[in-house]
């Protein structure tokens, strides 16, 4: 185990964590402010990735495609809100789970029909494709560093918006006592729509960023959705700061666990046994973490005040 390898793993973990944060931020706000369980948040991520694929094919310009994909992801989120989700806010959580499950099934199948069941890949433009010399032995892909940077920028932007602007104040107030905010004359319907649209756009953005690194395929959002739920539970529902910390934590633990679990286990057990259970144990780590947090700190690490 060299320091270089450890550094690479940490950077990969950070990059994965940033991606998780982009997805979780919208999920935790929608959940916290509206009390709405949106299982379809994962397919927004998939939609983002496919949009980028479609637009790069059409325009050939990467940056322009990113911009267009973001706008379409936003519009798509608003459409879903208008036609389906708006009617579910007052319904039971079970109804919400069911309806959004239906949307997952539909969009996954639609992606399969339109783009085929195979895995697609997107080429990076030249200025993002290379690697950069970090230390003497360590070269790291520029694009992954850019991902980390962009994630940080979004996190800072969101933090400032939620903490210091009027709309952020309304969002926090809405998460605590929606009835009171509504009684004070705020158009809560519009507030919900904005939060929802931005959340959908961020998930789409995560998909856009992920598309050139990971495989673009139908159902790619399903697993991300589950991990995003793990993140917002660990961070505390409704808390953007909590989501940030939890996303990085989950990203690092998952990445390090996958690479190191087998090695660590082979110190204690015989190698063949370690090889057998190492990968499974690594995949399990984040769920164990979530279960432990739920048992010992049921409201998450940084709970938003007043969220039930």
């Amino acid at each position: 185990m060299s320091t270089t390898l450890l550094l690479i793993l940490c950077l990969n973990g950070l990059q994965y964590g940033m991606l998780l944060f982009l997805i979780s931020a919208g999920l935790t706000l929608v959940f916290g402010v509206m009390g709405f369980i949106n299982l379809a948040h994962g397919v927004q991520y998939m939609v983002g990735a496919y949009l980028l694929f479609a637009f790069t094919g059409l325009t050939g310009n990467f940056m322009l495609s990113v911009l267009l994909s973001l706008l379409c992801a936003l519009a798509f989120g608003l459409l879903l809100e208008f036609f389906v989700f708006r009617h579910l806010y007052t319904r039971s959580h079970l109804d919400q789970v069911l309806a959004t499950f239906g949307i997952i099934i539909f969009l996954n199948e639609l992606a399969k029909v339109v783009f085929g069941p195979t895995t697609l890949s997107i080429a990076l433009p030249e200025f993002l494709a290379g690697s950069i010399q970090l230390t003497e032995q360590l070269k790291y892909p520029i694009y992954r560093l850019v991902t980390i940077g962009v994630g940080l920028l979004v996190a800072i932007g969101l933090f400032i918006t939620v903490s210091y602007t009027r709309i952020g104040m309304l969002i926090r107030a809405g998460a605590t006592t929606p009835e009171m905010v509504s009684a004070l004359g705020v158009n809560i319907q519009r507030l919900f729509m904005i939060v929802f649209g931005v959340g959908a756009m961020l998930a789409g953005f995560a998909g856009v960023i992920a598309a050139p690194i990971y495989a673009v395929e139908p159902g790619m959002g399903d697993n991300m959705l589950i991990v995003a739920f793990v993140v917002i539970i660990i961070g505390g529902i409704g808390s953007v700061g909590g989501a940030f910390i939890a996303a990085l934590l989950v990203g690092l633990i998952d990445t390090l666990g996958r690479s190191l679990a087998t090695e660590i286990l082979s110190f204690v057990f015989n190698p063949s046994f370690a090889n057998q259970i190492g990968p499974a144990l690594a995949s399990m780590l984040i769920y164990v973490l979530m279960a432990a947090i739920l048992i010992f700190r049921p409201r998450g690490l940084l709970p938003a005040k007043g969220v039930a």
């Binding site: 389906v84 069911l98 309806a99 499950f101 239906g102 949307i103 997952i104 099934i105 539909f106 969009l107 996954n108 199948e109 639609l110 399969k112 029909v113």
Partner: peptide
């Protein structure tokens, strides 16, 4: 592609 119908049906 029956899921294209089944999904909206659930909704």
């Amino acid at each position: 592609e029956w899921r294209l119908i089944y999904g909206p049906l659930l909704v």
